[in-house]
Amino acid sequence: IEALKAAGAKRAVLLPVSAPFHSTLMQPAADRLAEVLAPIEIKDITVPIVANVTAQEVTSGEEIKKLLVKQAAMPVLWETSVRNMVAGGVDIFVEVGPGKVLTGFTKKIAKGMMALNVEDAASLEKTLAELNK
Protein backbone atom coordinates (compact mmCIF):
# COMPACT_ATOMS: atom_id res chain seq x y z
CA ILE A 1 0.00 0.00 0.00
CA GLU A 2 2.79 2.41 0.88
CA ALA A 3 4.62 1.67 -2.40
CA LEU A 4 1.43 2.35 -4.35
CA LYS A 5 0.84 5.62 -2.53
CA ALA A 6 4.47 6.62 -3.08
CA ALA A 7 3.98 5.89 -6.79
CA GLY A 8 1.06 8.33 -6.90
CA ALA A 9 -2.00 6.26 -6.03
CA LYS A 10 -4.71 8.43 -4.51
CA ARG A 11 -6.01 5.58 -2.38
CA ALA A 12 -4.94 2.01 -1.64
CA VAL A 13 -6.62 -0.32 0.83
CA LEU A 14 -5.90 -3.84 1.97
CA LEU A 15 -8.85 -6.04 1.07
CA PRO A 16 -9.82 -8.66 3.65
CA VAL A 17 -10.11 -11.63 1.29
CA SER A 18 -9.41 -15.30 1.96
CA ALA A 19 -7.58 -15.98 -1.32
CA PRO A 20 -6.20 -14.13 -4.37
CA PHE A 21 -9.34 -14.75 -6.42
CA HIS A 22 -9.51 -13.46 -10.00
CA SER A 23 -5.76 -12.88 -10.20
CA THR A 24 -2.83 -14.62 -11.90
CA LEU A 25 -1.95 -16.16 -8.52
CA MET A 26 -4.96 -18.44 -9.10
CA GLN A 27 -3.60 -19.83 -12.40
CA PRO A 28 -2.81 -23.27 -10.89
CA ALA A 29 -6.42 -23.51 -9.71
CA ALA A 30 -7.65 -22.38 -13.14
CA ASP A 31 -5.53 -25.06 -14.80
CA ARG A 32 -6.97 -27.68 -12.46
CA LEU A 33 -10.50 -26.41 -13.13
CA ALA A 34 -9.86 -26.79 -16.88
CA GLU A 35 -8.82 -30.42 -16.29
CA VAL A 36 -11.95 -31.14 -14.24
CA LEU A 37 -14.26 -29.45 -16.76
CA ALA A 38 -12.65 -31.02 -19.85
CA PRO A 39 -14.73 -34.24 -19.87
CA ILE A 40 -17.93 -32.44 -18.86
CA GLU A 41 -20.36 -31.35 -21.56
CA ILE A 42 -21.98 -28.01 -20.91
CA LYS A 43 -24.94 -27.66 -23.24
CA ASP A 44 -25.85 -24.45 -25.02
CA ILE A 45 -28.43 -22.45 -23.08
CA THR A 46 -31.42 -20.38 -24.14
CA VAL A 47 -31.32 -17.82 -21.32
CA PRO A 48 -27.97 -16.06 -21.58
CA ILE A 49 -25.56 -15.58 -18.73
CA VAL A 50 -23.21 -12.62 -18.43
CA ALA A 51 -19.59 -13.71 -18.18
CA ASN A 52 -17.72 -11.63 -15.63
CA VAL A 53 -14.46 -11.68 -17.59
CA THR A 54 -16.05 -10.19 -20.72
CA ALA A 55 -19.20 -8.50 -19.33
CA GLN A 56 -21.00 -9.97 -22.36
CA GLU A 57 -23.89 -12.40 -22.72
CA VAL A 58 -23.01 -16.00 -23.52
CA THR A 59 -25.18 -18.95 -24.57
CA SER A 60 -22.60 -21.39 -25.97
CA GLY A 61 -21.81 -24.23 -23.60
CA GLU A 62 -18.22 -24.49 -24.84
CA GLU A 63 -17.71 -20.74 -24.40
CA ILE A 64 -19.19 -20.88 -20.89
CA LYS A 65 -16.68 -23.61 -19.98
CA LYS A 66 -13.74 -21.56 -21.31
CA LEU A 67 -14.89 -18.42 -19.52
CA LEU A 68 -15.35 -20.25 -16.19
CA VAL A 69 -11.69 -21.23 -16.36
CA LYS A 70 -10.59 -17.71 -17.34
CA GLN A 71 -12.61 -16.18 -14.51
CA ALA A 72 -10.58 -18.03 -11.89
CA ALA A 73 -7.32 -16.27 -12.78
CA MET A 74 -8.39 -13.05 -14.49
CA PRO A 75 -9.89 -9.83 -13.17
CA VAL A 76 -13.67 -9.66 -13.41
CA LEU A 77 -15.66 -6.82 -14.93
CA TRP A 78 -18.39 -6.76 -12.30
CA GLU A 79 -19.39 -3.12 -12.70
CA THR A 80 -19.51 -3.37 -16.49
CA SER A 81 -21.42 -6.66 -16.23
CA VAL A 82 -24.07 -5.08 -13.99
CA ARG A 83 -24.33 -1.97 -16.17
CA ASN A 84 -24.73 -4.11 -19.30
CA MET A 85 -27.46 -6.15 -17.62
CA VAL A 86 -29.33 -2.98 -16.62
CA ALA A 87 -28.98 -1.66 -20.18
CA GLY A 88 -30.45 -4.96 -21.37
CA GLY A 89 -33.51 -4.60 -19.14
CA VAL A 90 -32.54 -6.46 -15.97
CA ASP A 91 -34.05 -4.78 -12.91
CA ILE A 92 -33.84 -7.53 -10.27
CA PHE A 93 -30.56 -9.08 -9.09
CA VAL A 94 -30.36 -12.11 -6.77
CA GLU A 95 -27.02 -13.16 -5.31
CA VAL A 96 -26.95 -16.84 -4.39
CA GLY A 97 -24.28 -18.04 -1.97
CA PRO A 98 -22.72 -17.04 1.33
CA GLY A 99 -22.49 -13.34 2.12
CA LYS A 100 -23.87 -10.17 0.59
CA VAL A 101 -20.77 -8.62 -0.97
CA LEU A 102 -22.02 -8.72 -4.57
CA THR A 103 -25.47 -7.54 -3.49
CA GLY A 104 -23.81 -4.51 -1.88
CA PHE A 105 -21.72 -3.80 -4.98
CA THR A 106 -24.78 -4.15 -7.20
CA LYS A 107 -26.82 -1.71 -5.11
CA LYS A 108 -24.07 0.89 -5.55
CA ILE A 109 -23.78 0.32 -9.30
CA ALA A 110 -27.47 -0.12 -10.19
CA LYS A 111 -29.14 2.38 -7.92
CA GLY A 112 -32.87 1.87 -7.73
CA MET A 113 -32.74 -1.75 -8.88
CA MET A 114 -33.81 -4.56 -6.59
CA ALA A 115 -30.80 -6.50 -5.26
CA LEU A 116 -31.45 -9.51 -3.01
CA ASN A 117 -29.40 -12.37 -1.64
CA VAL A 118 -30.06 -16.00 -0.79
CA GLU A 119 -27.65 -17.76 1.55
CA ASP A 120 -29.93 -19.82 3.79
CA ALA A 121 -33.58 -20.79 4.30
CA ALA A 122 -34.48 -17.49 5.99
CA SER A 123 -33.00 -15.33 3.22
CA LEU A 124 -34.67 -17.55 0.61
CA GLU A 125 -38.05 -16.93 2.24
CA LYS A 126 -37.34 -13.19 2.42
CA THR A 127 -36.29 -13.10 -1.25
CA LEU A 128 -39.36 -15.04 -2.35
CA ALA A 129 -41.58 -12.66 -0.36
CA GLU A 130 -39.96 -9.64 -2.09
CA LEU A 131 -40.33 -11.21 -5.52
CA ASN A 132 -43.98 -12.05 -4.94
CA LYS A 133 -45.02 -8.50 -3.95
Rank of each mutant, 00 (worst) to 15 (best):
K5Q: 08
E63H: 00
D44F: 06
A38I: 00
V17S: 05
G99V: 05
V50Y: 12
T46D: 15
K10H: 13
P48H: 06
P20T: 02
G61C: 04
K126P: 00
E2G: 05
V86I: 04
A30D: 08
L4V: 02
K126V: 06
G88I: 01
T46L: 14
T46A: 14
L116S: 06
L67P: 01
E125W: 02
T80W: 01
V96N: 11
A12W: 08
T46E: 15
V17C: 04
A12T: 14
H22Y: 00
L77I: 07
V69K: 03
R11P: 03
A30S: 10
N132G: 02
G8C: 06
G89I: 10
K10R: 13
I109E: 10
E95Y: 06
H22R: 07
T127C: 11
A6P: 08
T54L: 03
I92C: 07
I40V: 15
M74D: 13
K10I: 11
A110E: 06
L37S: 12
L25V: 10
V101W: 02
A73F: 02
V76I: 14
V58W: 02
K100E: 12
K66N: 08
F105Q: 10
K126F: 07
G112Q: 11
I1A: 09
R11V: 15
L124R: 10
I1H: 14
A55F: 00
N132Y: 05
T103E: 15
A34H: 07
I109L: 09
I64E: 00
I45S: 01
A51W: 00
E130R: 15
G104P: 01
R11K: 14
T80L: 09
K65D: 02
A38M: 06
L33Q: 08
L14M: 09
V58H: 02
D44V: 12
P98W: 02
A122F: 13
P98H: 08
L124V: 11
E95S: 00
P16E: 15
V101I: 12
A121G: 05
A6V: 08
K126I: 03
W78H: 03
E119T: 02
N132Q: 13
T106Q: 04
V13H: 03
V96C: 09
V58D: 03
A7C: 08
L131I: 08
R11D: 15
E119K: 11
E57M: 10
K65C: 02
G97T: 04
N132M: 13
D44M: 11
Q56K: 14
A34W: 05
K5Y: 07
L37N: 12
L68C: 14
E95D: 05
K10T: 11
V53W: 00
T54W: 06
G104Q: 05
K126H: 10
K70Y: 09
I49K: 02
A55L: 00
I92P: 03
S18I: 06
E62V: 10
A38H: 03
Q56L: 12
L102Q: 07
L68D: 03
Q27S: 12
E95P: 04
A34F: 06
S18D: 13
P16C: 13
A7T: 11
N52G: 05
N52R: 04
E130T: 09
V69N: 00
E63N: 01
I45E: 06
M74H: 14
V36N: 09
P20H: 08
E119M: 10
D31V: 05
A29P: 01
G112H: 04
A87L: 11
A7Q: 15
L116V: 01
K65G: 01
V13G: 07
G104S: 05
L25Q: 14
V50W: 07
N117S: 15
K107S: 10
